[in-house]
Design a protein around this nucleic acid. Structure first.
Lengths: 238, 238
DNA sequence: CATGGTTTGTTGAACATTCATTCAATATGA
DNA sequence: TCATATTGAATGAATGTTCAACAAACCATG
């Protein structure tokens, strides 16, 4: 085994966003993995471009440049621009999905803790940073006219929604709330999505913190017995 | 005065979406108004194209075809594609703005009624139909990378947000709720936006009715004394 | 009312540009 | 040496913009 010359080149080329584990994988598996690494590298560059220039101005050249590679490379690893974008969306979807599932598992068995964990996960730095949010929104804007996107574009898809409904139902049973679990779950998940949108837009003074605050405000309102309001009036109201 | 020969031609050319009042304006003011009518006609065609093909695939040719006019016409009435799109966004913004302001006025002086009216207005057919929602979303997807859009893209802008905050504050004073008006207003308006997004996506079984239902659910949760829950558990929960 | 000239709106073809894709040549690792 | 990855120039299609020609409406005049 040669002392990872490929990896050295990778490190030179790799922009900030590429996770280090991937490079280590490459170290172990050699060329075969290199292909996957390249794909990831190009996907990250695609997200960069989407965030910086928007969907309509994201070009193959920009992606290649962003990855520090040549023009033709994208068509080699992905067959076409369309497929690159689908792979990028799929990547973001997988990441998001894995993230909330992990948060759910980590929260243990208590529904109230689980719901809180889900909400908090949505505003985790690794998920709801400007770059990723902008990329999500870029896809949302195209989803209606592209069936392929539509399926993946609801990061909050049926499975996610069902978890919410289920948790709302459990909390309702626990404390005897009077609401429709389905409606409440819809309101909650829609609000999370709306907060994402606000965060992405970046206008106003909505930050990850204030968004999270608003989300917890909702939880306190809907499930007062599980999330007793911590007298939030004490906060300075500008 | 000749018996409106121009108008006859207009009627021939005008597609469905053009309001009749505009044609009557044209009748009165002659050529000068015709220009405004043409602009509106092209803007409507642009919304059509945005809704059908998405932002990135909306072309000048498609807009012109949609309006039943020739290729060069758009550059005559709007200087460029960019300006056509800005004008379209401005048009939608103005319409939305006028709509909620009218609803607010019509609701009278009671804050609770006003808030309910605002929420309901958001799901009015004339505003939240698939066509317009899709167009909004198309712009959202591009807003981050275009400062010009960004200002207009928050249909729910600072003024709108302030109305919400104000209403939340008044209701709080009236009934002594314990919440942060700003946070609650953010949660509420974000939820409305999120529901729009769901409606636009069209996946799942979210309809204008269920979205409105979820929004009212929120009102009942946040302001129970103003919107007493109508024992919504009686609804069939699939 | 006519008539002719002027302004204004409209057309569609020509043009220039941008961009995804292809591919022969080259470099690299096995 | 062979297979594979990468390059970058060439290609062709799509599309925004321009513009010269044309049509319609308007406005003097006679």
């Amino acid at each position: 085994m040669s002392p990872r010359p490929a990896v050295l080149k990778m490190d030179t080329l790799m922009k900030s966003a590429l996770p280090k584990e991937a490079a280590q994988d490459n170290e172990k598996r050699g060329r075969k993995a290199s292909k996957e690494v390249r794909r990831l590298q190009l996907i990250e560059a695609t997200i960069d471009s989407l965030a910086k220039r928007g969907y309509s101005e994201t070009t193959m050249a920009d992606v290649a440049d962003g990855a520090g590679l040549s023009r033709g490379i994208v068509n080699f690893h992905f067959e076409s621009k369309e497929k690159l974008l689908v792979a990028t969306l799929q990547h973001m979807y997988d990441e998001y999905s894995a993230h909330w599932r992990a948060a759910l598992l980590k929260a243990g068995d208590d529904p109230a803790r689980q719901l809180r964990a889900l909400v908090a996960a949505d505003f985790d730095r690794s998920i709801s940073n400007k770059r990723k949010l902008a990329a999500w929104c870029a896809f949302w804007g195209e989803a209606k006219s592209r069936p392929t996107y539509q399926a993946l574009c609801g990061a909050r898809d049926a499975a996610y929604q069902n978890v919410f409904i289920d948790l709302c139902r459990k909390l309702k049973e626990e404390a005897g709330y009077d609401f429709d679990p389905q409606g409440t779950a819809l309101a909650l998940s829609a609000m999370l999505e709306g907060l994402w949108l606000r965060l992405m837009m970046g206008t106003e003074d909505v930050t990850r913190e204030s968004a999270l605050q608003a989300a917890f405000e909702f939880l306190s309102l809907a499930f007062p017995k599980h999330y007793p309001g911590q007298t939030r009036s004490e906060r300075n109201v500008g």
